[in-house]
Amino acid sequence: MEQVLKCHVGIGGVVEGEALVATDNFSARYDLNRIKGVFSRPDHALAGQSYKDKILVFNTAKGGVASAWMLHEMVSRGIAPRAILFNTANTILAQGAALANMAMCDRFEDGDVTALIKSGQQLIVDPVKGQVTIKG
């Protein structure tokens, strides 16, 4: 059964991919080894896991402004997530998604997105309509 989650209008175009979910917060500078394409911060819930081509789902963004360039740089090398979903994004991640042309959405009407979506589910993210579809 498909399930459609409504959210605020976001950034970027329609993408499809597999969800990788954590209740943690996210920073490209603090949490990632961007060369290897894995979460590198030892106390991050996704430590050691690859983020390449995933649709990442987090509570919110944390930390500094560097992520605004880093998403663009990650996309240019082809080692990047396809989309990032948040309960609440911050300005930096939104700005980074705009430069990188990466899909990003936040503010889901049905509650906590990190509980609504499970790792491994296939998602279609449509930032223009402001909706995310969980495919069966």
């Binding site: 500078r29 402004v65 605004a68």
Partner: peptide, 12 residues
């Protein structure tokens, strides 16, 4: 503006 070469990379 924050824009160090590590964050920018070649693309930036």
């Amino acid at each position: 503006m924050m824009a160090d070469p590590e964050s920018l990379g070649e693309a930036g």
